[in-house]
């Protein structure tokens, strides 16, 4: 039922416009299609992503609050929970039925009481370094499919300075500054 999804998205859009969380802006790319949004997320202060403004695309299913949206960064990202094509892999975006890793408890999964705002705040805290430890654990195993970005997880763990340097470069790029 696209009707109720539409109403809910409208309500969320309104709430995010009138009462936006710090450093986050989100809204439909084009109101012709209310099921595709763009979000801008400011990198949390005090982290290696500080200061960057990262654009991401959110695609909502027609039965929206029942199924989670998909989220994909449209800029280059380097993070253990973000695939190299920008797709974000956090448990709040996973429907209760599917558990690709077999690690998540259903308490952390998508539920219709979640919202765009909560997703984006989760992503902010993910950028702040609280990434889900599942991938962190898995990165020790030679299993390519376990983490979203195994290289990033490894570097985060073993070579933090290098990781910070890459993050700094990404931040400059999103701000349109020369590297």
């Amino acid at each position: 039922m696209a009707g109720s999804a539409l109403r809910r998205l409208m309500a969320e859009y309104k709430q995010l416009t009138l009462n936006p969380p710090e450093g986050i802006i989100a809204g439909p790319i084009n109101e012709e299609n209310f099921f595709e949004w763009e979000a801008l997320i400011t990198g949390p202060e005090g982290t290696c992503f500080e200061g960057g403004v990262f654009p991401a695309k959110l695609i909502f299913p027609p039965d929206y609050p029942l199924s989670p949206p998909k989220m994909q960064f449209t800029c280059e990202m380097f993070h253990p929970n973000i695939y190299s094509d920008g797709r974000v892999c956090i448990s709040i975006l996973h429907a209760p039925g599917d558990d690709p890793m077999g690690y998540e408890s259903s308490a952390e999964r998508w539920s219709p009481v979640q919202s765009v705002e909560k997703i984006l705040l989760s992503v902010v805290s993910m950028l702040a370094g609280c990434f889900e430890p599942i991938y962190y654990l898995n990165a020790t195993e030679p299993n390519d499919e376990s983490g979203a970005n195994v290289d990033a997880a490894k570097m985060w763990r073993e070579n933090r300075e290098e990781f910070n340097k890459i993050a700094e470069r990404l931040v400059r790029r999103t701000l349109g500054l020369p590297p």
């Binding site: 802006i25 801008l40 400011t42 200061g51 960057g52 403004v53 400059r172 701000l175 349109g176």
Partner: peptide, 13 residues
């Protein structure tokens, strides 16, 4: 608002 956000972030940075 988007533009303002990016601009502000750039300035701050």
């Amino acid at each position: 608002r988007r533009e303002a956000l990016v601009h502000q972030a750039r300035r701050r940075y």
